[in-house]
Design a binder for these strands. Structure first.
Lengths: 108, 108
DNA sequence: ACGATCCATCGTCGTTCGGCGATTTAGGGC
DNA sequence: GCCCTAAATCGCCGAACGACGATGGATCGT
């Protein structure tokens, strides 16, 4: 139940890990992780291999609107995907973005 | 000339990569990297294995005071070390902090 | 001792972040 | 159609960020 759709299935990332564009990219990804609540959300989603939705709100003792903002930030950064599942929305990791982040971090 | 002193020489980092404390730690490190100029500074310092000081100002087309702020942020985050070298200050990577960041990023 | 240089810090300004309650939007169930 | 629930969005607020110029403190050269 409520599993996210399949990944868009990208091959290995060919973009460079250096240069001005890569710097901006890493900075943007880092900014998306620059808050404990967002790191926690990412870990929650990683632990349960299935997707959860409003359960995140229950775990975080933050208001629903605040959690929604955090989710939006990470989604825009490409770290999460959110699929609509009936009246709910199912979030899960975007492993592509996560891999990209790790690759950029590893290049330091 | 102008090489930083030796690293404080820490063994392998024993702190956990998960839990609330680790989340806060990763968030803090990520915040320190959440700006293109700071990523760039880190890369500049990584490229030249010797330390540079005000040369960073020349490369960044930012005001000297702004660069100083960025350096302070990364120093406080444990990503840089700054050793006084006569009238100049010699910045270089704190490989301990950098390793820690990579370890935390890799745990995602 | 003096001026010059390097860097840090201060004060200011506009922008963005992070939080919340309240409201809107979108589906599902009856 | 109507309500109920889940989630997004809006509006507001205080706090922090990011940039700058100006000022201050330390050190070198002369």
């Amino acid at each position: 139940m409520t599993d996210c759709g399949a990944e868009p299935l990208g091959g290995p990332d060919l973009r460079p890990v250096e240069g001005a564009a890569a710097d901006a990219e890493l900075a943007a990804l880092a900014k998306a992780l620059a808050h404990p609540a967002r790191v926690r959300i990412l870990r929650l989603l990683a632990r349960r291999n299935t997707c959860i939705c409003g359960e995140i709100v229950d775990e975080l003792d933050l208001a629903q609107s605040t959690v929604s903002q955090h989710l939006k930030i990470m989604k825009n950064a490409g770290l999460l995907r959110g699929d609509i599942d009936g009246p709910r929305v199912c979030y899960c990791l975007d492993s592509r973005g996560l891999r990209r982040f790790k690759a950029l971090a590893g290049s330091l």
